[in-house]
Amino acid sequence: MLKDITLGQFFPGNSPLHKMDPRMKIIISAIFIVAIFFAKNIFSFALLILFSLILTTLSGIKHSVILKGLKPIVFIVVFTAIINIFWTKGETPLINFGIIKIYPEGIYTAAFMIIRVVSLVVGTSLLLSYTTSPIALTDALERLMNPLKKLKVPVHEFAMMMTIALRFIPTLIEETEKIMNAQKARGADFESGNLLNRLKALVPILIPLFISAFRRADELAVAMECRCYHGGDGRTKMKILRFSVFDFVWLFVMLIFSVSVFCLNYIPTTIKLSF
């Protein structure tokens, strides 16, 4: 059933990645992203691959899951790779078919680009999605952005909205299913006809869905007030997040990793890249 689909694909577990403080995961992801864009030569890219593989192994997430997660980006990756292969100019063409000339530089650029995108997606989804529940992530974001409250950024309100949205996604999906079935029982047809007809067929679903969403919002607001909700002022949290030694080890490893990526760029190689 639709409602069994979870958002963000969280796989509960007990790996070192799961145990990391969610705030540290956000920090580490940020460093990782920066490191990826610093990588410029074959050695730094090799380190990138190695690091992604280590993360994958430590997470305990099945390889098939990770490969599935890459599916949505396959098209973009292949497309940009092809463009890079054909359009990158170098000195001596590897293959020469008259107009079409493929240079080794093109192939390297395409390969590095693939590594970049794939390790970006694998790294961040391992850290932020597969091993972190959406609620922990929201909570961590709220805490990390807490200093911004001084600048009148509505950090708490934003986090509350995220939490409520996450809470109601399954409820609304279930409701959509119900309304669709009810209209189908009255002869609604969502599958045939041209685009305009199909859009028109959505009206009997969207109107009841919106009305119900507003009713829910109304009732939820009253229920929250009854439970003494009055914004973020004076609010405490049941969960205490404390960085462990372990988290700082991670941070240390991550910093070494990015410095290494940076330094490896200075090892001279014969392969030249066009970026």
Partner: peptide, 26 residues
Amino acid sequence: GLVFQYPEYQLFEETVYEDIAYGPKN
């Protein structure tokens, strides 16, 4: 004909007449 649980949540037309007519029109 199937009437679901809490079927009032499926109403969507501007008038009661139009809503009752939705099925027959289909």
